[in-house]
Design a protein around this nucleic acid. Structure first.
Length: 836
RNA sequence: GCGGGAAUGGUGAAAUCGGCAGACACGCCGGAUUUAGGAUCCGGUACCGCGAGGUGUAAGGGUUCAAGUCCCUUUUCCCGCACCA
């Protein structure tokens, strides 16, 4: 009896798939459109740490699904590649002087090896990496399409600046005021930037979400991020004359309650509005505001601050003059950077008014404005022609009034900001633009793409807001493609997200040197039918790539307005950690288990609580996939990650649980060692087989892999005691196992005399004659409590059921002397007798 | 504060429509086999109770013949956003 030698089995079949290009896919037109699928994984950033156990979770899920689809006659595009531009490689280069390309390509090599060890059915002939010239050539080309369409513009603006990464960041890359990547506190810095006009697509990005089969949470996050709001712009005439101060408000109906105005410290009218006696105070305030970090400025707990400009504006509805203040609770980046303050009905204005003793006018009935602002709906008062109206009606009426008077109009605002697209770093796509003193900004001609990243001596960011590329004179100095005069290259690079904005299109036609994708092939595969990846990209990659795709759509480059039809976020794989009383965590190697489930900290002896925590190097609870594959095999690893629980929830890793699925595979191996006979299977065997095929098929289709595996275990437990196994039940089982444990299944298929690959075999069918039992358990309840369980023929009529019950001594003894007042009968499930 | 999601044994979890709560595993207990077991096979394992039986899906209330599932209130946890006028 041979041992389940997973290690050599897995090597053997991985070699076979590679050499035979088993998973090579072409645009075979004989597959009708409904038999084509594009199943995509989020490609990894090839970090120096190697593959994490979180990667294989999503990859295994899509792999099982793709193998299943292939066996069911689908043509499936399932590619893999690498998102290979990015900061870690560059930071490593700064430390060691090794070129990022060298590090990155070594990491890619390692990632590819690790991924291949898991036996995924990727078509490796389509592999791409975003840092390769043949790839970023088209990233640059697509950027130029945006540029030509007027969607890329240069702007000198205060942006998020990470002092550690020494580069500007997009709003989406700032988390709670800290750099998403390195954790340093983000400051503001005025910098010349390339910005993409994502706001031009705000409405489309919002409405496009409607028809996407995406998790509600991701859609909601994108909706909130886009942040559409409806209101009105209102212009207040300056009392001093010479112009207007325009504000945005969602509550124009409260205009009669406006008792002062506030502008952001960065507002362009600040100087014009500041009167001589107020100048020192205003300048002081502005200086202080500029020094504050975003975190300090947006700290909700802090007191409102502000300063009076000395100027007044005229309320257009009643001619009253109201003072104009400056405060940093007004953001220059939203609306018009100025507001009308209605302290009676807005909590922030209320706090400001209380602090500076400004008047309040209540214009809605309700609440107690002495205690807090009343922000709900109500009947308008003190509002002349709005009196007696509710909020929606009053809003309509006041907008009509403002528009007629020409001092305001209905306005829609978005929180979404344009996308700051340049990075002052080396390891990214050079922005293919040239600054000419005569012609302005000129695109690098298409035939000069790719604009290659030049070699540099130092990767160190300058920190002055210039990229390391700026130091290479021979690269920077060039000639204008239009007029031929001396000109300078743009030295900023693109952000990490650029390459991932369109990689799913390149997989379709990865070696095309004439176009970024052949439109025929694009039409064949797109859109992506299923996209699986982590939730962390909800407002980053997933928003950016939708934006680019919509631009491509408008340019006629692609045929769909959305790239990803269905999205699933895999849950995070967590681990356990040990927690002290004060909620701090202890690294795993400092913990001792003194009794089952009782843990103490070595040294201090403090009792610790076992809790679920993210895997982290510092907690020493990181699981390395290589170790797992070495000790248990890739099939065990795959199966365990799918068996842990539903794909989309986060689950803690337990190596003992993995031993369980490994035992399951060993049991399969031992069954295969028994004589496989041509005997006719028993009815019982046919029943369990057909039920298993049915359950595994539907569960796999629905991506419910955990319950599919449970069903396969039930099958194996049922046949494991047999001396011999009929081929007629074993062969179909091997086939349904194949998507889950492909290496073992190939081996068993070969032993059955099948021709490899098992991946090309048709999926087994099932016969409902065997999946439906002729006898069922009928639960008998009396007054809602289970009192008996009877085995009865299927689809028993109510008459027959009553006869059966009448013959049952237990039921009789319980109902004796009582009246059955009601009988609820659900055939094949339950009967409930209500007795008195 | 706003928005999204969740809460089921010692653990991971399962439970089409409202119809036997805890499938399948892990762990634990017992048995068989074995020189041995961290191997294998068989059995047990929600809780209370010797038992009949009772209780039980975060807490409380409701609808229903029947609720983990539907409705209301509350609590806790995770995630996202947050002075967005």
């Amino acid at each position: 009896m041979s041992k389940y030698d997973f290690s050599s089995i897995e090597k053997k079949w991985q070699k076979f798939w590679d050499e035979n290009q088993t998973f090579r896919v072409t645009e075979d037109e004989s597959f009708p459109k409904e038999k084509r699928r594009y199943v995509l994984d989020m490609f990894p950033y090839p970090s120096g740490a190697g593959l994490h156990v979180g990667h294989p979770e999503g990859y295994t899920a899509t792999d099982i699904y793709c193998r299943y689809l292939r066996m069911n006659g689908f043509n499936v595009l399932h590619p893999m590649g690498f998102d290979s531009f990015g900061l870690p490689a560059e930071n490593y280069a700064i430390k060691t002087g090794t070129h990022p390309k060298v590090t990155t390509e070594a990491n890619i090599e390692r990632f590819r090896t690790q991924i291949k060890r898991l036996g995924f059915c990727y078509d490796w002939s389509r592999e791409i990496s975003t840092h390769e010239e043949e790839y970023y050539r088209w990233t640059q080309w697509l950027f130029l399409k945006l540029f030509e369409k007027g969607l890329a513009y240069e702007s000198d603006m205060p942006i998020n600046w990470c002092p550690d990464c020494k580069t500007g960041l997009a709003n989406e890359e700032v988390k709670d005021g800290f750099c998403e990547r390195c954790g340093a506190q983000v400051t503001r810095k005025n910098l010349r930037q390339w910005v993409l006009k994502i706001t031009a697509y705000a409405e489309q990005l919002l409405s496009g979400l409607e028809n996407l089969d995406w998790p509600e949470s991701v859609k909601t996050m994108q909706r909130n991020w886009i942040g559409r709001s409806q209101g009105a712009n209102v212009r207040f005439e300056l009392a001093q004359g010479g112009g207007f101060l325009e504000v945005y408000t969602t509550r124009p109906d409260t205009l009669f309650g406006a008792t002062y105005m506030v502008i952001a410290p960065e507002h362009p009218l600040t100087d014009a509005l500041t009167t001589a006696p107020q100048k020192t105070a205003v300048d002081d305030y502005r200086k202080k505001a500029a020094l504050k970090s975003d975190l300090e400025r947006t700290d909700l707990a802090k007191d409102k601050t502000g300063v009076f400009t000395g100027s007044y504006a005229v309320n257009p509805v009643n001619g009253k003059e109201i003072p104009i203040w400056i405060s940093d609770y007004i953001l220059i980046s939203y609306g018009t950077g100025a507001i009308m303050a209605v302290p009676a009905h807005d909590q922030r204005d209320w706090e400001f008014a209380k602090k500076f003793d400004l008047p309040m006018i209540q214009v809605l009935e309700g609440g107690d404005i002495e205690k807090e602002a009343f922000t709900e709906d109500g009947i308008h008062i003190n509002s002349e022609f709005l009196n007696g109206l509710d909020k929606p009606t009053a809003i309509e009426k006041i907008i009509e009034f403002l528009e007629k008077k020409g001092v305001g109009e209905r306005t829609v605002n978005y929180k979404l900001r344009d996308w700051i697209f340049s990075r002052q770093r080396y390891w990214g796509e050079p922005i293919p633009l040239i600054h000419c003193p005569h012609c302005g900004t000129v695109a690098v001609p298409e035939n000069q793409l790719p604009l290659r990243l030049p070699q540099v001596q130092r990767y160190e960011p300058t920190g002055t807001g210039e990229s390391p590329l700026a130091a290479i004179d021979e690269w920077v100095n060039t000639v204008c493609p239009k007029c031929g005069s001396a000109a300078k290259r743009e030295t900023n690079t693109m952000p990490q997200w650029a390459g991932s904005c369109w990689y799913y299109l390149r997989y379709i036609d990865p070696h095309n040197s004439k176009a970024f994708v052949d439109p025929k092939k694009e039409a064949y595969w797109m859109p992506v039918d299923l996209y699986v990846g982590g939730a962390e990209h909800a407002v980053l990659h997933l928003l950016y790539s939708r934006f680019w795709h919509k631009v491509f759509y408008d340019l006629g480059l692609v045929k769909d307005s959305e790239p990803f039809k269905r999205l699933i976020n895999q849950g995070m794989i967590t681990s356990f950690a040990y927690q002290r009383k004060n909620k701090t965590l202890v690294a795993a190697d400092c913990v001792e288990e003194i009794a089952p489930d009782t843990y103490i900290e070595k040294g201090t002896g403090e009792k610790l609580e076992k809790v679920i925590a993210k895997m982290s190097k510092s907690l020493k609870n990181v699981i390395n996939p290589d170790d797992i594959i070495r000790d248990y095999g890739a099939d065990s690893m795959r199966l365990y990650e799918m068996f842990m629980g539903p794909l989309s929830v986060s689950k803690p890793w337990q190596t003992e649980g993995l031993a369980g699925v490994h035992r399951f595979l060993e049991r399969i191996w031992r069954i295969a060692e028994k004589p496989i006979t041509d005997a006719v299977p028993t009815d019982e065997q046919l029943k369990i087989l057909n039920k298993t095929v049915k359950k595994v098929k539907t569960d796999t289709e629905n991506l419910d892999f955990n319950t599919a595996i449970a069903q396969m275990m039930i099958f194996v437990n049922a046949v494991t005691g047999e001396e011999t196994v009929p081929r007629a039940i074993w062969e179909p089982f091997v086939l349904i196992l194949a998507p889950y444990a492909p290496h073992l299944a190939e081996e068993l298929w070969e032993r059955l005399g099948g021709k490899p690959s098992v991946a090309n075999q048709p999926y087994p069918s099932f016969d409902d004659a065997y999946t439906v039992d002729s006898e069922v358990t009928l639960v008998v309840q009396i007054n809602g409590k289970v009192r008996s369980k009877l085995t009865v023929p299927r689809d028993l009529t109510e008459e027959e059921m009553k006869k059966t019950l009448a013959a049952d001594s237990k039921i009789n003894s319980l109902t004796e002397g009582k009246t059955v007042v009601k009988t609820v009968y659900v055939p094949n499930r339950i009967v409930n007798l209500i007795i008195k």
